[in-house]
């Protein structure tokens, strides 16, 4: 893993990888959403409202995957002092927060016609809102306490503590069975008809690729900033 500790070696790989993730990701997302909107049949009870699923569910998955990534990167930062770990955690935070927000907004839009309410303080909805606030807290903390592109240890500790919320979100529909339905897709199989399942998977893969591309872009920007700062300092010293 420390092979990539050298930023220029990382950049050599990250630079061509960014468009290789971004363009197929964008294509998959647009294709899946277009197919889902025009070709997927209306659902037996909800009609066309069901099509929000193609954005809502991938956004929820990525919001949770993002914090899992932050937690792993934080552990790597604290234990192995890997120089890129903090930078990658910080790069994940903004798209993670964005996808959590998309999940909450699309969920609310879906909830009004389907459930009859924009919002309820249900276990799943509340824990997802907490995740969004955790992201905002992490971003603020990392910005306030870090310098030279490196993330402070306080932010890393916060990233690990916040991970407690991830299994809570996952289990919330089982523990507090109130408004949100239980998981449709589990290790045992899926309760979603194939007509929705395939565009959903395509959209999920597409959004994941986009997420990866955004993280790489932000990491490259952070590394570039560090370089600029170092160069400026050298110029100032001469």
């Amino acid at each position: 893993m420390h092979r990539f500790a050298n930023p220029s070696r990382f950049l050599r790989i990250a630079k061509p990888l960014t468009p290789a993730l971004f363009w197929p990701g964008l294509l998959l997302v647009l294709g899946a959403c277009f197919w889902g909107l025009t070709q997927a049949p209306p659902e037996r009870l909800q009609g066309d409202t069901v099509k929000i699923i193609f954005v809502h569910v991938p956004a929820a998955w990525l919001g949770m995957a993002g914090w899992t990534g932050i937690a792993i990167a934080s552990i790597v930062q604290l234990v192995w002092r890997h120089p890129l770990a903090g930078i990658s955690a910080r790069a994940i935070a903004v798209p993670g927060a964005l996808f959590a927000a998309i999940c909450l907004i699309t969920g609310s839009i879906w909830g009004k016609p389907a459930w009859g309410t924009w919002w309820v303080w249900d276990g799943r909805l509340t824990s997802m809102l907490v995740l969004f606030f955790l992201y905002l807290g992490y971003i603020a903390l990392a910005n306030a306490s870090s310098e030279k592109g490196n993330v402070s240890r306080v932010a890393a500790v916060f990233g690990i503590i916040g991970a407690v919320n991830i299994p809570i979100i996952n289990r919330s529909v089982v523990w507090w069975e109130s408004q949100h339905q239980k998981a449709s897709i589990t290790l045992g199989g899926s309760a979603i008809s194939d007509a929705y399942l395939w565009p959903l998977f395509a959209a999920a893969i597409g959004f994941s690729l986009l997420f990866g591309a955004i993280v790489l872009m932000r990491m490259r920007a952070a590394l570039a900033e560090i370089r600029i700062e170092a160069r400026m300092r050298r110029i100032a010293e001469n």
Binding site: E43, R44, W115, T117, Q181, S184, A191, S193
Partner: peptide, 12 residues
């Protein structure tokens, strides 16, 4: 009135 959904998604 709040309606609850089950986890099934089935075309009409």
């Amino acid at each position: 009135l709040l309606a609850k959904h089950d986890e099934n998604y089935v075309p009409r």
